[in-house]
Write a protein that binds this DNA or RNA. Structure first.
Length: 293
DNA sequence: AATAACCACAACCGCGTTCTC
DNA sequence: GGAGAACGCGGTTGTGGTTAT
């Protein structure tokens, strides 16, 4: 009857992930690709539920993630999309390659909201507020009348034109290039090949094929989780994920030999400029996760 | 130097949707 | 077609770090 439960919640670990757990999860996904999340913790030897593994991967461990604060341009795009889409963070994230819905949501709540309020703009309605109007009470009222999200395909299509892509390096909101050169470079959507063999679902293939165009395709929702391998044992083996040479640091051979890891290698494989201090600092921040480095 | 207050972000929770049997 | 489970999303909470007192 139905599917098997994703995890029995008894004895599962919660809270912050340890470096060891990260390592296990990364190794597993490197070896096997992203397949059924419910199977991941068991096979990877983790005492976590599949949901937790998926979140950890999509929000933190994915190689294509940009780290660091959102740029001015990205903020503008978030604000603009939020005015049209409301709190549909995954939709918004799909227009910002390398950013996750969680990240955008957090950034919105901690930075952008305040910024907008300072500018005298209601972050919920995106309309100017008169002084004294922005009271707590008012805010609650406003939240009940959040902007009408775009419902139609056409609307979403038009919004997709704002997507940050390699092809269009300018946003609809500004004439300046979308990414500063000192930002962490993205692995472009087209650099990730999702193999679409005959057994792969049409939906996931379509999503992969349209990865660069339209919606960015690298969002947590539209890319990483779209692999359909549910319930077909032959696919559960390992689906649909190949990395180009440029991202082949994820290739198990090298990555599994953690002892030999160096940041220079990491940079190279990620396509990072070894001299980019910002990137390095970001990676240094990450290093706590990989004490073995 | 100690500690309280604040801030940022990772992770969890719950719900709606999708999918399989 | 219905039941039950996985998945994905958005809201909320918890935790660690930083700043102010």
């Amino acid at each position: 009857m139905g599917r098997q439960p994703c995890c029995d919640k008894v004895g599962l670990k919660k809270g912050p992930w340890t470096a060891e757990e990260d390592k296990k999860l990364i190794s597993f996904i490197l070896t096997n690709g992203q397949c059924c999340w419910r199977a991941v913790p068991k096979l990877a030897g983790l005492l976590r539920c599949g949901k937790s593994c998926r979140l950890r991967w999509t929000n933190y461990l994915r190689p294509d993630l940009k780290r660091g604060l959102l740029s001015e341009d990205e903020e503008k795009i978030v604000i603009d999309l939020h005015s049209k889409l409301g709190n549909r963070w995954s939709k918004i994230a799909s227009h910002l390659p390398g950013r996750t819905d969680n990240e955008i949501k957090n950034h919105w709540n901690t930075h952008i909201k305040k910024k907008l309020r300072k500018m005298g703009i209601d972050p919920i309605t995106h309309k100017p507020v008169t002084p004294g109007e922005a009271t707590e009470k008012n805010e609650k009222l406003c939240s009940q009348s959040s902007p009408e999200p775009a419902e139609t395909e056409a609307e979403e299509q038009s919004m997709a034109s704002q997507t940050l892509t390699a092809e269009s390096e300018t946003s609809s909101l500004g004439q300046t290039p979308v990414f500063c050169t000192d930002e962490v470079p993205m692995i472009e959507p087209h650099e990730i090949i999702v193999s679409c063999d005959a057994s792969a679902s049409p939906a996931s293939c379509a999503a992969a094929a349209s990865g660069g165009g339209g919606g960015g395709g690298l969002s947590s929702s539209s890319c990483s989780s779209s692999v359909d391998c549910s319930s077909r044992p032959e696919e559960i083996q390992f689906p649909c994920m190949e990395w180009l040479d440029s991202v082949d640091f994820w290739g198990l051979d090298e990555f599994s030999t953690w002892d030999h890891f160096s940041f220079d290698e990491w940079d190279g494989k990620l396509g990072l400029d070894p001299l980019n201090q910002f990137q390095r600092s970001v990676l240094d921040q990450e290093a706590w996760k990989f004490e073995l480095f």
